[in-house]
Design a protein around this nucleic acid. Structure first.
Lengths: 192, 192
DNA sequence: TAATCAGTACCTACCGGTCGGTACATTTTT
DNA sequence: AAAAATGTACCGACCGGTAGGTACTGATTA
């Protein structure tokens, strides 16, 4: 893929994150990327095509940063979960407090409208949940958690808390609610 | 308010819930409500005005059903939380599994775009969180919960789990993930 | 010189919103 | 009570503007 195309995708990610996919026009992207219409339609067949490329790029980044870079490493499980929360809070803090989770927003906006978007986004969430479940299983084997934990279900609830927490944070325009929720996670799974 | 106007709001709620606010055109609403453009602009100053009316109507309903009808009653706290989960799962099941939480969707779509929308939606979430926090406090006074619970923070995390759980449910197109998450809530707060 | 890259003019469909006008019920005047 | 005036509900054609997308041209590069 040409670096020019990659650049357009990157800028589109920002624009779509802040405005939403539907509310973002091709002109918005042309303006932000400082390109003409011919150039846009040279690299992308349609707006839908760009949207898909944006989702793929976002998923690829997050898979690398979160799944591979944090969760599936050989660090001890507690450290991995701590880093996950830290990543969720800091690496997006500037943008997310205003515009929310790029992945979650697309999930809500597009899952109901377009099956292709939904499947790509869902694959990421499943990887995330499964990776967290593996870590919880590891912790149980180490007797770091009591037996009432169900790794799969608790992993789902942790991801739900993070995504729901970001939703509440955006609604309140205050990061404190997300920190509160992370504290609850830290306490339940003894991450301190 | 005329019942005609109320009817348009009700139909608009459904259309906007399934398509999102931005993706819903005034023509979509005219068609669904079987009215002409003149009628629409007789009752509403603008699309934005309709959107606000839709949010207000939604908030009013949920305040009545959830806050007043379930959480702020004189039932015992465990029953109230059980009913809240039941309400979240059943009362919207048909629509929500496909289209998600009407409130959460609007929160994500509109909070970043329009301050008026954000404030109205946020007020509801705050009422919800505060009502749950009161119930958790009551449970702690009854020694039904251990002292590690922080009512405010745990209430925030419960609401986040519900909203995040619905997000995951829509992404997976499967209600099981929401049931799993509710099980985690039930276990932690001894709601069985 | 081919293929790729980029700019611009332009297409049609649709957007939110306005406008002139109609039908009919209610109120006011005579 | 009849006539005139006013108000409310509603219609659908139409407005300027913008949407996504196409066609065609010229520039750049291999």
């Amino acid at each position: 893929m040409s670096s020019k195309k990659q650049g357009i995708i990157l800028i589109s990610r920002e624009v779509i994150h802040s405005k939403g996919y539907q509310a973002t026009s091709v002109s918005d992207i042309m303006e932000a990327a400082k390109i003409g219409k011919g150039q846009f339609y040279h690299y992308f067949q349609s707006k839908h095509d760009l949207g898909l490329a944006v989702v793929e790029d976002l998923v690829k980044d997050w898979e690398e940063q979160l799944i591979i870079g944090i969760l599936n490493t050989s660090n001890d499980p507690v450290t991995k979960l701590q880093r996950m929360l830290q990543w969720a809070e800091t690496s997006h803090a500037e943008m997310e407090i205003k515009y929310g989770c790029a992945m979650g927003n697309l999930a809500i906006e597009m899952s109901t409208q377009d099956e292709e978007f939904r499947i790509k986004i869902n694959e990421f969430f499943n990887h995330w949940i499964n990776s967290v479940a593996d870590i919880l299983t590891e912790m149980m084997e180490n007797h770091q958690l009591d037996q009432s934990i169900n790794p799969k279900k608790d992993a789902e609830s942790i991801v739900a808390m993070i995504e729901g927490g970001i939703l509440l944070m955006v609604s309140q325009q205050n990061i404190q609610v997300l920190r509160d929720i992370f504290e609850v996670i830290i306490q339940k799974y003894h991450l301190d």
